[in-house]
Design a protein around this nucleic acid. Structure first.
Length: 633
RNA sequence: GCCACCAUAGCUCAAUUGGCAGAGCACCUGUUUUGUAAACAGGUUGUUCUGGGUUCGAGUCCCAGUGGUGGCUCCA
């Protein structure tokens, strides 16, 4: 099954974080980057979490404490509270934390036996559970040991608070600047104990802590910048899309400017794919449920699919993926080994029931369009075709200047039995993926257990402005669907053989990709993507005719351009269009009419002065055609 | 789906302990004709998310629903 759009990795245990907060440079000599876990910042945050717990227990003496690790940019602590927490509580706790931090309280470590530990945390059930696990050795959900039993446990104490903790911590609260700590920047959140929705839901208090108040101030500014870049904020400001309650949650409406952006991307990718031998196909939004029973998607994944629709006594589904349809296109004719690879491409809109709490802007929606293709290959073609697909995805990301992604190879692990198919084929496929990535010099990492259920895959994962991770592009190797749909080709030796299927989507989904793209460019799109590429601004009404003439000329050369003939002064028009991130503002007055020039002002701040209309058109069209991110002419 | 918070004009927000629903921007009309980030004057704009309840009186308090936000869980 294609996981064509899914998978965010949640960072809550602090173990997957990059150590970039603390690049160490000593006396001009570059030192290797320190691991986050070894950094002062990590100890500060870990210690601040303990102080948070101490203050919370003063405010809520009946609270039960769970865990409180450092995370990227801060820390949290989970509490089981007797009543809901409000802003006044947060304010009180923050003030109290700062008071405790101002004291000179040492963090002292003490080794205790499990018995002593149980005695100490007699009224803290979550701690008792942790102690039991540590003493017995950690086990995963299948009962396999993942950590050795601990013989002794460590307790850290500061002021009047002790916590079960392996450390490390700062030596004393004097190592933490109270002015560099805040818990009021992020609202309290719900979180299940041990991430299990069947266990109690706890209240998670997030905090942030830095070495200096200046770093805290910088962090605040980064948060504000993130809001400014948020695709939901920019989507409204730039009139790209809206979510409408009457239409339904998670079903965004594309406004004209957003549709132009989307259409431009779609046409661009379609052209690239045609060059590379892809064939267009089109399939309907509804399909008979038999299609999904055959593919295996139903009822196993019924939770995320919409209730079937009765059509003349048969059950039809809104299609949650395009692959079964493409398989049926494959089987519509007998296939020869000479026909392969066969690459069916479709911008296919699919519908999935996503939990309401997870919906978000364009990055998580209930109806979305996958830039999907299914490639049917002979086994001997798999490696080359896989490389070609990765090459295509790299081309797409590279053309858009998106380098801030991680590539993840998802393989199967032994902890789950959800995998289908022969393990030798899995091995073959995984080796093909790894070989392809190596040959392409792709910087990847392997995560066991992140495969699709039918085969290993390669995903391209990016982070949004709020540092949430989203899967965009994906390539998946599938031996399963060809089996289920009984796909065959006649080989050179006249034997019927089974093709291998590659599922792939460079964008993943148009919606999510554009959401990320808006944030990537902060709304200032390169000219080829900008919904409006140039605005002509007449200085006086008497220049309107010239402005309209320029509009017509540039339009006929294919540029997306408008003349702004409103009865407002030039300065206010410049302000308005700058705010809309229009790349080129063409101001025209007497001198320009006289000399047939336009005075070009760039989206940023730069005024290029007058240039001949032809020269502007040629230079701008070159920028557009080359997909340059540069707007200077 | 779960926990918490939020919802006032198209947008951003205000409205004392429950006492006549407001401002800026946008929009409309007029004046203005401007050389690079907001001309001037006047005017329109409301089921205060929806439905119940308490009250002499509800934007404000209570209940339910809807939508949004932050997390958690899930994510083929």
């Amino acid at each position: 099954m294609p996981s064509l759009i899914c998978c965010s990795i949640h960072e809550c245990d602090g173990t997957r974080l990059t150590p970039r907060e603390s690049p160490v440079t000593a006396r001009g000599i570059d030192m290797p980057e320190e691991r986050y876990e070894d950094s002062l910042l990590y100890r500060i945050r870990h210690s601040a979490a303990h102080v948070l717990a101490e203050a919370m227990l003063e405010r809520f003496p009946a609270a039960k404490i769970a865990i409180g690790p450092p995370i990227e940019d801060g820390f949290y602590y989970d509490f089981d509270l007797p009543s809901a927490i409000n802003d006044d509580d947060i304010k009180w706790v923050e003030t109290r934390m700062k008071k405790i931090l101002s004291g000179r309280h040492e963090f002292t470590r003490r080794e205790v036996t499990p018995e002593e530990a149980r005695e100490l945390f007699l009224d803290q059930p979550y701690k008792l559970e942790l102690i039991d696990d540590l003493v017995n050795g950690r086990q995963d959900d299948n009962g396999n040991p993942i950590a050795d039993p601990a013989e002794s446990l460590s307790i850290y104490t500061q002021n009047k608070f002790s916590d079960l903790c392996r450390g490390p911590h700062v030596e004393s609260t004097k190592d933490i600047n109270p002015k560099a700590v805040s818990i009021s920047l992020r609202p309290p959140a719900g979180a299940y104990w041990r991430g299990d929705e069947k266990r109690p839901q706890l209240t998670r208090i997030y905090g942030t802590a830095w070495e200096t108040p200046e770093e805290l101030r910088d962090y605040r500014e980064r948060l504000e910048e993130a809001i400014r870049r948020d695709h939901r904020v920019l989507g409204e400001k730039l009139n790209l899309f809206v979510n409408d309650a009457m239409v339904g949650k998670g079903l965004p409406l594309w406004l004209p400017d957003g549709a132009i952006l989307r259409d431009t991307l779609e046409r661009w990718l379609r052209d690239i794919q045609i060059e590379r031998g892809y064939l267009p196909v089109v399939t309907p939004h509804l399909g008979n449920i038999e299609l999904y029973k055959t593919s295996g998607h139903y009822p196993y994944y019924a939770d995320s699919q919409y209730t079937p629709i009765d059509v003349d006594g048969d059950e039809f589904m809104l299609k949650p993926m395009n692959c079964p349809h493409h398989c049926r296109i494959y089987t519509s004719q007998p296939r020869s080994y000479r026909d392969l690879p066969l690459r069916y491409a479709e911008f296919g809109t699919v519908y999935r029931y996503e939990q309401s709490g997870e919906l978000r802007g364009l990055t998580r929606v209930r109806g979305f369009t996958v830039d999907d293709a299914h490639i049917f290959v002979r086994p001997d073609q798999l490696l080359d075709e896989f490389k070609a697909v990765v090459n295509l995805i790299q081309h797409v990301f590279g053309s858009l200047g998106m380098s801030d992604f991680r590539a993840r190879i998802g393989t199967r692990d032994d902890a789950s039995d959800k995998w289908v198919g022969d393990s030798a084929l899995w091995e073959t496929a995984a080796v093909a993926i790894i070989d392809a990535c190596d040959e392409l010099g792709l910087d990847y990492h392997i995560e066991a257990g992140e495969a699709a259920f039918y085969g290993p895959k390669l995903d391209f994962i990016v982070r949004d402005v709020l540092k949430r991770e989203w899967q965009l592009g994906t390539v998946q190797v599938d031996y399963n669907l060809p089996e289920r749909f009984d796909l065959e080709y006649v080989d050179r030796d006249n034997e019927r053989k089974r093709p291998v299927m590659i599922h792939r989507a460079p964008f993943g989904s148009l919606e999510r990709f554009i959401g990320i793209l808006i944030e990537h460019f902060a709304g200032a799109f390169p000219p080829w993507l900008a919904p409006t590429q140039a605005i002509v601004i007449p200085i006086r009404e008497s220049h309107n005719a010239y402005a309209s003439e320029i509009e017509g000329l540039l339009k006929s050369s294919g540029m997306r351009v408008k003349a702004d003939l409103q009865d407002r002064n030039m300065r206010s028009k410049i302000r308005q269009h700058r705010r809309m991130e229009i790349p080129w503002l063409l101001v025209v007055g007497d001198r320009d009419v006289e000399a047939r020039t336009v005075s070009v002002r760039l989206r940023g701040d730069e005024d290029l002065g007058a240039m001949p209309l032809d020269a502007f058109a040629a230079a701008a069209l070159e920028r557009i055609a080359s997909h340059s991110g540069e707007i200077g002419l």
